[in-house]
Design a protein around this nucleic acid. Structure first.
Length: 292
DNA sequence: ACGTTTTCCTGAGCGC
DNA sequence: TGCGCTCAGGAAAACG
């Protein structure tokens, strides 16, 4: 299975971009696949025009979105890795691999930034900045909620919004406007930790339970970051979303029929939202009408 | 208006 | 060997 870039991997990519790309000036930009710039409505040529000659001032992230502000403008190069995207920092003489979707060369003649994406669910665009002071993000992602690693994540506000929803907890965890950066894997892991069934109605969740749930997400993400992030150094020049350094130690995801690490009951897999949900049928009791 | 379903994409794995 | 089918899922458009 291809390693889907999860939030910890995206954070490592952000750090790599900050280290290897920030402060450099674009000499030449190439957008090589129309799907990779489909979110930029003015088209790939406009992306090239807005990038050429611009200096990238930093690397920021919200959830799984990354952006590089463009000096002297109120715009940023926005990227999302989707399912299979990679940002690679490579010497110009390195051969183009398959699935190369975009390339930025810099005026210093050093390593290029390449966007590689087999399935092209991800992509790049140049976007105007927006949002409130202290929460400036590209305007098109203003609806994306803070992620669990964001110091400004507001647990009380998240809890209130969650309890107003009329849906199941896993749907809510995957809704990027409520809380961002949680994909199918970490949703299942966090629910297992909190002993919650994926279909548990959000309105039945108490504040302490939501607190435990969010703490669980944060723990899983931080331990992944601690394991993968430490391997990132000067030798690890590939700013790479599918990093093999992330040996995620998963408790439920992908463990169908294997024993629950708490109670030994075989883990169950069920279809959910055209995906899979993995859970322990004993630790994570299915909600019932009238009394969950 | 809001919750749910569909859609985009390609390679791996599998049965025949 | 090779064909056709299923599966993997982030996020938003489309739908009801």
């Amino acid at each position: 299975m291809v390693g889907v870039p999860e939030l910890p991997e995206v954070e490592v990519v952000r750090r790599g971009l900050e280290r290897w790309v920030a402060g450099r000036t674009v000499a030449k930009a190439e957008m090589l696949h129309p799907r990779a710039t489909r979110r930029h409505l003015a088209g790939p040529d406009d992306v090239v025009a807005r990038l050429t000659g611009r200096t990238l001032t930093g690397a920021e992230r919200r959830g799984k979105y990354l952006w590089l502000p463009l000096e002297g403008t109120d715009e940023a190069l926005l990227g999302h890795l989707g399912m299979s995207g990679q940002l690679l920092v490579l010497p110009p003489e390195d051969p183009d691999g398959p699935h190369l979707r975009a390339r930025l060369a810099f005026t210093d003649g050093g390593r290029e930034l390449r966007y590689v994406d087999q399935r092209t669910f991800g992509g790049l665009s140049v976007e105007p900045m927006g949002g409130p002071p202290g929460g400036r993000v590209p305007a098109v992602i203003a609806h994306i909620g803070r992620d669990p690693l964001d110091p400004s994540f507001d647990l009380a506000a998240f809890t209130a919004a969650l309890r107003r929803r009329q849906t199941g907890i896993k749907r809510a965890l995957l809704d990027q406007s409520l809380i961002s950066g949680i994909g199918n894997i970490y949703a299942d892991e966090a629910l297992w930790r909190a002993r919650l069934h994926y279909a548990r109605p959000t309105e039945t969740l108490t504040r302490p339970v939501v607190g435990t749930l969010v703490a669980g997400v944060r723990d899983v993400m931080e331990s992944a970051l601690a394991a993968g992030g430490t391997s990132f150094d000067a030798l690890y020049v590939n700013v790479n979303g599918e990093s093999g350094y992330f040996d995620r130690s998963l408790d439920v995801y992908g463990r169908r029929d294997e024993p629950c690490r708490r109670c030994g009951t075989p883990i169950r897999r069920e279809p959910f939202m055209s995906r899979s949900s993995y859970f322990c049928p004993r630790c994570q009791l299915r909600p019932r009408r009238g009394r969950w």
